[in-house]
Amino acid sequence: MVWRRVVSTLRHGPASLPAEPLDEAATRALAERLEAAAQRRLGRSLAIRQVDGGSCNGCELEIQMLNSIVYDLERFGLRFVASPRHADVLLVTGPVTRNMHEAVLRTYDATPDPKWVVAVGDCAIDGGVFKGSYAISGAVGTMLPVDLVVRGCPPSPAQLLNGLRALLEANAG
């Protein structure tokens, strides 16, 4: 069965979905810029560690899609790693609950310098709808130095890619 698929792929080319309006040209350009920028600053790749600070799991769903064949994050030299000790970038989601506060700080401390923090989603930026709850510590920016925010509830994979591009560009100069 797999072989049939392989043969059909060879005949018809790889499966892809029509681009979302945001992207494809930008994504291609991103690939080139990343190559230049990331290599200068970080060698060949940028390792990302995602930390859920109290999200509803909506942001995680869209971040996971970056790993799918449609977005294929690794073609940009960007990849998700399992440990903060291997990471250059922390993607933090959620309004940061009081129960997760310490875990988020400890994850940040475990990440070696140089490191960047990206606050992903409206909750991470200012608490979103959960602002003012007794159980919320506060936006990611109140406890960590945030280098970039990606808006959205949740942001789409295309918006996330755009955000990572902006981060690379800002740090490339």
Partner: peptide
Amino acid sequence: GWLHKGTLGLMHGKSPRAAAR
């Protein structure tokens, strides 16, 4: 319990339309 956001408390006193979020 790590993700406890106090959601039920935030819904109190709101209209169903506002609490639907």
